[in-house]
Amino acid sequence: MLPLDGANRKVTVFGDDHAYDTASIVKVDILAAVLLQAQGAGRTATAQERAYAQPMIQHSDNAAANTLWRQIGRAPGLDSANKRLGLTGTKGGPGNKWGLTRTTASDQIRLLAAVFGSGGTPATASGVLAKESRAYVQTLMSSVERGQSWGISAAGGSSWAVKNGWLQRDATGLWDINSIGLFTVNGHRCLMAVLSDRSTSMSEGVKLVESVARATARSALAN
């Protein structure tokens, strides 16, 4: 978790900061890569790119993600963008399996700082995304469909922006459940990433993630 204002602007990590499969939270990273590539070409996102980006974030549309994953150059393209964004523990998934991208909670905070922040902490390159690009991602994450607004939004507050991921593993039947985003409480904007695996059901995983989000917010904001 990272408060974006106030005196305590430092990342707080609870638990082991090891790598998890992203599932659909990687769609924010894919969009960041699309926007960085567009900026590198001296342009903004095209109408076609936006036509894929909107359902990918707001409705977690996998077909749209497939298209943009191929466009950015799959894992090598994602890894290149992440290097610019200051992510150090994220590795793009094999082939077309973007959902098997591996990441850490601290890297997801770096990504969120690149989207929602305005300075260089904690990501050394959080200013790489142009103001217009950041605003576009923020707008999409603030308007996900109602059924996908669970997760870090449970931390409370007056507003939130979120992207969630969920994936049932074929080999075990267990679930990866993740949630990243921003919430605002008592006028303070905070970034949060909650990653989990091995839940016996999606509903159990969602309850776990929301419980961790609430507990983390209480602990961090009390200090």
Rank of each mutant, 00 (worst) to 15 (best):
M1W: 02
A64Y: 05
A125C: 14
G92V: 03
D197H: 13
L208P: 01
W150I: 00
A53W: 04
D176K: 13
N62H: 13
G117F: 00
A161F: 03
R146W: 15
T124R: 14
R218W: 05
I57H: 09
G117N: 00
L100R: 05
R43K: 15
S211L: 02
F116M: 02
L140A: 11
G127N: 11
R146P: 15
A45W: 12
R146S: 15
R74G: 07
G173R: 06
A65D: 01
A217F: 00
L87K: 02
V144Y: 12
D21P: 09
S126Y: 07
S118D: 05
G151K: 03
P122T: 07
A154I: 03
S211Y: 01
G127Q: 14
A114E: 04
T88I: 08
A215E: 13
A38E: 13
N62D: 15
Y20V: 03
A64P: 07
R169G: 11
L182Q: 08
V34F: 01
T121R: 11
L31P: 13
V115C: 01
H18F: 08
S149P: 10
L87Y: 06
S179Q: 10
P76V: 03
M192L: 10
D176M: 08
A215V: 11
S153N: 06
L182P: 01
Q168L: 01
T216C: 08
W150A: 00
L112I: 03
R102A: 10
A75G: 09
H18P: 06
A155V: 00
S106C: 04
R214A: 10
A23N: 12
S126I: 07
I109Q: 00
P122I: 06
D170T: 14
E210Y: 01
N186T: 12
S211F: 03
G117D: 00
A213L: 05
D21M: 12
R146N: 14
T22E: 02
A33R: 07
T22V: 03
R50D: 10
P3M: 06
G92M: 00
I57E: 04
I72H: 06
I180V: 13
L2Y: 02
W166H: 11
Q71H: 13
H59K: 14
L68N: 06
A38I: 06
L87A: 06
V137F: 06
V128C: 09
S143D: 15
L87M: 08
A65L: 09
G157C: 05
I57Q: 01
A41P: 09
T124G: 12
P55C: 08
C190T: 11
H188F: 09
W175G: 06
A125S: 12
R146D: 15
R84A: 07
T216G: 14
A81E: 05
D29Q: 15
L112T: 10
Q39G: 12
G92S: 05
I25C: 05
I57L: 05
